[in-house]
Design a protein around this nucleic acid. Structure first.
Length: 221
DNA sequence: CCAGACGTTGTT
DNA sequence: GTCTGG
DNA sequence: CCAGACGTTGTT
DNA sequence: GTCTGG
């Protein structure tokens, strides 16, 4: 699964990498946690180009009574996403790319859990496959929220953890953002097109979301 | 018909 | 909103 | 994902 | 143990 990730590159680098016309208002983050605002790209029907959009991490379905349901919906399994009431509408209509340059997974070692940090071997910024929703709170505030699709772990991740986030290869960004074109099952064979991942042990300081510094991603235990 | 759930991961 | 269970 | 709280009444 | 918050 994916419950913590990073986006440490500068906003200028993001704009360049994803060919954005505007430089996003973002800060380097080493420890992004659920319920926080995360950087995404969406393609609106009326607009020719994909657009930068902040979203709350943890999808809140439109029919939800309480925003708290989003804490449980931080990931969606690609194997079942088309069937689940919470995701079915979003998978057909509301795709997004979630910007990241690393993610964390925890390995169980008996009673202990050791975090690992995963990046592309190239070190480049990349994008998770995501879905989004809008929700109107009882106070009539609009919340845009999202979830990260997960799949079976690949050869690099599987020694650490069974599941991993779907990383969309850059040549397939447009296809993923257009639900008319790409089904969740279409995307799976394309995942091997990206760079390989590399894993590093991370500091257990990453366990606590209040720590958000370069030390987390770089240092081993 | 209405009431209540709607999810993931991991562990057993 | 839509589906399942009673 | 992990960390941290988890309750009431009444008084300041 | 389970839920909420980050």
């Amino acid at each position: 699964m994916c419950g913590r990730f990073s986006l440490t590159v500068s906003p200028e680098a993001i704009a360049q990498q994803f060919k954005l016309s505007q430089v996003p208002d973002s800060q380097p983050r080493y420890n992004i946690a659920p319920s926080q605002n995360i950087a995404t790209l969406v393609k609106r029907k009326e607009a020719p180009e994909k657009q930068f959009q902040w979203m709350r991490w943890g999808l809140v379905p439109s029919w939800a009574k309480d925003i708290k349901i989003g804490y449980k919906l931080i990931n969606a399994r690609v194997e079942t996403v088309t069937e689940k009431p919470s995701f079915r509408s979003a998978i057909k209509q509301r795709r997004c790319l979630i910007l990241a340059d690393g993610f964390y997974e925890w390995q169980k070692q008996g009673k202990q859990k050791q975090p690992y940090y995963f990046q592309l071997e190239s070190g480049e910024v990349f994008a998770f496959a995501g879905l989004w929703e809008t929700w109107n709170s009882p106070e009539d505030e609009r919340v845009i929220s999202c979830t990260i699709l997960t799949t079976a772990a690949d050869a690099v991740v599987s020694p650490i953890h069974e599941r991993m986030p779907i990383i969309v290869p850059s040549q397939h960004y447009q296809a993923w953002l257009d639900p008319e074109v790409t089904t969740p099952q279409d995307i799976l064979p394309l995942l091997s097109d990206r760079d390989r991942l590399q894993a590093k042990p991370a500091s257990t300081m990453v366990n606590n979301p209040k720590y958000d510094s370069p030390a987390l991603a770089v240092s081993a235990e």
